[in-house]
Amino acid sequence: MRRYKVAIVEPATLVAEGIATIVGGSHEGEIVGLVRNTTELEQLLRNTEVDVIIAAAALHRDLKACAAIEEIPVVGVLSSLIDDEATRKFASTASIYTSAEELLRIVRRAVDAPTEHNYAESHELSERERDVLILVAKGYTNKEIASELNISPHTVISHRKNIVHKTGIRSVAGLTVYAVLNNLIDSEQL
């Protein structure tokens, strides 16, 4: 299974190193950047693919103003009290007292959660999601799917999250079976 790519935005060195050790040391996440503020984050996001950002919750105003984040989920790490309104801006929150296992669960949930703009109560796949699923079943990579459908790799990742959420199936092999059983693809094409 692909490891999700994590950027950490945290001015406190010990907290940043602790998060990096827990998440990077697990088999789930790969730390692709460790920065101290949103200016450095913007620079990082220009050339680096990121699936989830873990950021000091105290930076919530700067994060809100950071356009480069787009649809990337942000997990806020609380080290002091901030108002409820600010915590609601995050995909989810942890605190400096959260256990390592719980932090990994929180981050994993944030990565897997369907993106807001595509979230629908219906579990029917949209036409675009079906297009992406067919290409996943045929063995295309995210980059190849993006190029084939003329969309960004971030959008492909968003569609894939929605597909996993709606079908309940995570593995490529399982999604391929799903595509065949639901007549989206002929088994001869595999």
């Binding site: 593995s171 092999a173 799903y178 059983l181």
Partner: peptide
Amino acid sequence: DDRTNDIASL
């Protein structure tokens, strides 16, 4: 774990 869950989902 993912594939085992996938069997159940299918």
